[in-house]
Design a protein around this nucleic acid. Structure first.
Lengths: 169, 169, 169, 169
DNA sequence: AATGAATGAGTGTTCATTCAT
DNA sequence: TATGAATGAACACTCATTCAT
């Protein structure tokens, strides 16, 4: 994850990974059948942490606002690394919907739980809401390096709240 | 631009570009001294269109809201291609601030004009405002494929308006 | 000649030649059908100057020693450039005896005149004498940069005189 | 060495080397980090053999003449290949004195030992002597193909002896 | 006659992947 | 199971040569 975050997918060689992991290059292929699988594993790991974040937020929240409060805090932990890895992945599997769904399936399901739980408050359809979450959260990576963390959190929280609860008229 | 948008920088070979352009590989090097220069030219082209958009929006606007109204419409033309190319570029020149400033300089200046013109309404500092524009606009790429264009425009306009004019408290 | 002397054959591009000559690249091909012909023309030019040198030396000399005195002086003019060009050529046409004989034919004939004129003094066969001239003169390039010109001339004159007039026993 | 000797540096591709060595092109890069390093390795190998030759000659000799007798015999072994490789190298690193000194350093030191041991007999300064050795020995390559080996050896031995022991007046 | 834009074969080099040990 | 030497397809880039103007 460290390497993919620092340099993206293409600029990291299997050798780099093996070196950092202090194993032989061949050993990598005992556990992954190709380089892309390593990236997938990283992304799965990240999505699992998102799932945990949503679970926790769902448990502790009583409305969309309090959900976002907990979730965004969780999400923005490690945003520096996570989002870069996700970008690398996004670019990479762009057309291979299957692969994407495979690693993000559980996350999507949790988002559905959230959608269903607060269906009353949410004014956009699920697809749009999902897209808005993705967009806002990804965008926070781009802004991350130039903005105060607290300001960023505020913007993301309010921005998300605003866009999914206002009726688009 | 088409190729960089579809596949990013690394997954496009100079040969691919030459083939699509129906010229010989060598011909490319008559006009660009290295592959990266092609990407830079694309990005410069995009930024020039942004600059035009801002100029027009500044001329026609009388407040932040009307500015955003015009600007976002202009910006979201070709967002499909533009933002992917910008992403490819972003990843690529990430650390080479010089190169980035070189192509985005004029755009930044126009944003400064906007900032100065409506300084009264805008509640965040310039750096944050710039980061927010970048983030929102980039993020619209990610959302673009899953959302209704009109819905997206609305979200971006309101989201931007909201995040730069609310005091972060 | 300047370029070939400075950089050898391969490190000089047709473009370099055209630029230095202040003509278009295409113009080169009006006068030479391929790059190698340019080198050949240079070498022909050099050999013609050698031929002149031998002619003059033959006219003015009455024995091997006085011949060498005149010839070596003539030869070592421009040795810096000439020998580098000849080296470039030598390497290049190494196996193509035809090409070599073509440009050096007249020079060889003059050497034969010299050989025949002073056959009494010369103790090696023509082939060896020819090889020794070539060797000594070429070698002077390698020594040229580290030795006093006058010392070099002395060594070449005496070395040549010695090696062709001593009987090899 | 065979390929560099036959065709020089530029006309040998890494592919040619790999093919002749019956290994994959990539394998070459496991052992050499760039093409030039291969040439350097060849030249180092040759210089090591020269160093051995001088050591042996110094051990067995009691004057300049007997030194040359042993040394030239050693030197002219493989002259066919060695000198062509050295020429390729000479042209190549011509301006990069560092690289040249790096591979020829030990050889130069041995020549200094020789110079110091027989300082009484030698009439030129070290630099000139070194240049003369280089020139004569290199020149023997050019003559090699047209002269009887024994005749050549004789010429080189006597030529060298003569040029370094006669006072240049 | 002079040009230089266009070309593509050829180069050095990288790197994901394989496989014998 | 762990390894890294070996591999060759693929890449960015160069340059002698052509040819329409």
């Amino acid at each position: 994850m460290q390497l993919f975050a620092e340099r993206g997918y293409q600029d990291v060689s299997v050798n780099d990974i093996a070196s950092l992991a202090r194993v032989g290059k061949g050993t990598i292929y005992t556990y992954f059948s190709e380089k892309e699988e390593i990236l997938e594993a990283c992304v799965s790991f990240i999505f699992r942490s998102f799932v945990e974040g949503i679970k926790k937020a769902l448990r502790q929240s009583k409305d969309v606002e309090s959900f976002l409060d907990t979730f965004v805090d969780t999400f923005l932990v490690d945003v520096h690394i996570n989002s870069r890895v996700l970008f690398a992945f996004h670019r990479r599997v762009h057309k291979d919907k299957k692969k994407y769904e495979c690693v993000s399936g559980e996350y999507r399901k949790m988002m559905e739980s959230f959608y269903n739980k607060y269906r009353g408050e949410i004014k956009v359809d699920f697809k749009s809401m999902y897209a808005l979450f993705t967009s806002f959260l990804m965008a926070s990576y781009l802004a991350y390096e130039s903005m105060e963390p607290e300001l960023l959190k505020g913007v993301v929280k309010k921005g998300l709240f605003y866009s999914i609860t206002s009726s688009p008229k």
